[in-house]
Design a protein around this nucleic acid. Structure first.
Lengths: 192, 192
DNA sequence: ACCTGAACACCGTTCAAGT
DNA sequence: ACCTGAACACCGTTCAAGT
């Protein structure tokens, strides 16, 4: 047994932080250290401060969500149906991991200082952009279409999570997500 | 000069809290008390705890936003244009009062315990519902239409505020809001 | 390098006490 | 009723010290 038993303390700290965040309880730096079995200031060897840890958590969560959405998309053979599958996956990820979703979007760390975080959410936009290419004859420019779809799905997800829409029932929220995707595509379809 | 110089300490505390929240700095119960010129535990005479104050702040903010949106709507003589005016007002309120918007949607107090808060955001849905009645021949049921529009506008607002959309430029965000409203209406329009 | 204990300046909340 | 000061159990962060 080493005195320095954590060859990978950084990873252990992140894991402890995920667990605490998921349980929505006592998400303090000192508690994270406790769960990782180290002293309350050992984390400062790996993170400049609490925000730094939260930024790492947010970035990591974005990667997990992207992987989850991509996996869901890959299961759908017909390209036009993939956008809806992605939207549903986005919703389901948020409903299953509300704390991750909150950390991703409602944390207060300075985004400008974390390019990896910015890159991660930019990837989300790129993914939507790519999925939209299976849809022809849209009468708005691709960037606007991308933002409309992402923002709408994100809005339903965020409000749904907080149970402000349809009592947050997952089935009803999925129907609402489907309706949003279909309505937006329909609305963007050119009449030509 | 009374010893109990605050005939209306509750209002003074809320005002101090608004100022602190707006400056995004040091939003602690003790600091709120300091700004109101009372001891650090005087607030407990008016609020059960910090969450209780935050819930009051959130509810109050909802009423302010509703009043702001209603005023914007009232200035528009043609009913079909009112929905877009409301959406823009929603966006502008959020951009001008990001701390209020955050308190309204991202606080962690138990909503179930604050029926006034629930009533306030239900009013938002009702308002959208009413504005949609100026639009005929929609091929989705009114409740779904209401939720789609609110969630989309809310999503653009939330992501835009965090500068995740178009660098958060107000002009571009307004264009995006307009596009969302128009696209959703277009998509919901029945072909008959 | 990596980790520790002690210390500092804060919190939210409670309680006994004052007017 | 309304407000206070002292106290409790916490924080995040820093620093000198240990291996």
């Amino acid at each position: 047994m080493d005195k320095y038993h954590h060859g990978n303390l950084r990873a252990a700290l992140l894991k402890a932080a995920f667990h605490l965040a998921a349980k929505m309880e006592n998400f303090t730096l000192r508690e994270v250290a406790r769960r990782a079995g180290v002293s309350h200031n050992a984390p400062y060897r790996h993170f400049r401060n609490k925000d730094d840890l939260i930024a790492a958590l947010a970035t990591e969560s974005f990667h997990q969500m992207l992987a989850f959405v991509r996996a869901a998309v890959a299961e759908v053979p017909t390209p036009p149906d993939r956008l809806r599958a992605a939207a549903r996956a986005y919703l389901h990820f948020a409903l299953k991991n509300p704390s991750r979703f909150n950390i991703m979007f409602h944390s207060t760390f300075d985004r400008h200082a974390y390019p990896d975080y910015v890159a991660a959410y930019t990837e989300s936009l790129v993914l939507v952009f790519e999925l939209l290419q299976a849809h022809e004859n849209l009468n708005v420019d691709p960037d606007t279409a991308t933002e409309l779809v992402w923002a709408s799905v994100h809005g339903i997800t965020g409000l749904g999570m907080a149970a402000r829409l349809r009592e947050g029932s997952p089935e009803n929220l999925e129907l609402l997500i489907d309706a949003a995707v279909q309505t937006l595509l329909q609305g963007m379809r050119s009449l030509s």
